[in-house]
Design a protein around this nucleic acid. Structure first.
Length: 158
DNA sequence: GCCAACGTTGGC
DNA sequence: GCCAACGTTGGC
């Protein structure tokens, strides 16, 4: 089992969208980055815990916890010319892009902000806090996972 | 809205 | 295979 962090823009799809789904489960489509795809395809397993991260918004940070509900399968939005992430080069007979299903577990009691995470020397190796990082799906080590969870009920460091 | 950082594309 | 141009990400 591995731990993960997945980013989404709350204006497009935030944690409340997921929580509102029937069964609190939804597919995570639209990933168009090879590194992120390879991790979904090769490493993500049902039951893996995932931090839900809000990006490109007023207060970027970790807002909740979900889990992988279904391993990688083809992302049909790549074949849909109307879709935002349509990829004409993805062949339905040999799909280039995959998605997973995720299940809502809970919202955190507060947002653990990016600036707060950046202030923690222990987390300096996380891709999330590194300059210029754009990876939308990344692994989290068990130690990092526990440390971050411990911040939830601690006073914000920033 | 700005812009730095990064990934992808395509000409050569 | 190189690399300039381009598009995207995402913090600020």
């Amino acid at each position: 089992m591995r731990h993960w962090l997945m980013k989404s823009e709350p204006d497009v799809y935030g944690i409340d969208h997921l929580a509102a789904q029937s069964g609190k489960t939804d597919h995570w489509d639209g990933v168009r980055n090879y590194q992120a795809r390879n991790m979904m395809r090769d490493e993500m397993q049902p039951g893996d815990p995932v931090f839900f991260y809000h990006s490109n918004c007023a207060e970027p940070g970790i807002v909740g916890i979900m889990e992988i509900a279904r391993g990688a399968y083809p992302d049909p939005t790549a074949f849909d010319p109307e879709a935002r992430y349509y990829d004409p080069k993805s062949d339905p007979d040999n799909p280039r892009w995959v998605m997973v299903d995720v299940r809502f577990k809970r919202k955190l009691d507060r947002t653990i902000t990016l600036s707060e995470l950046k202030a923690q020397p222990v987390l300096a190796e996380m891709p999330l806090v590194r300059k210029g990082n754009r990876l939308s799906i990344m692994p989290v080590t068990p130690d990092q996972w526990e440390f971050i969870l411990g911040l939830e009920h601690a006073p914000p460091a920033l």
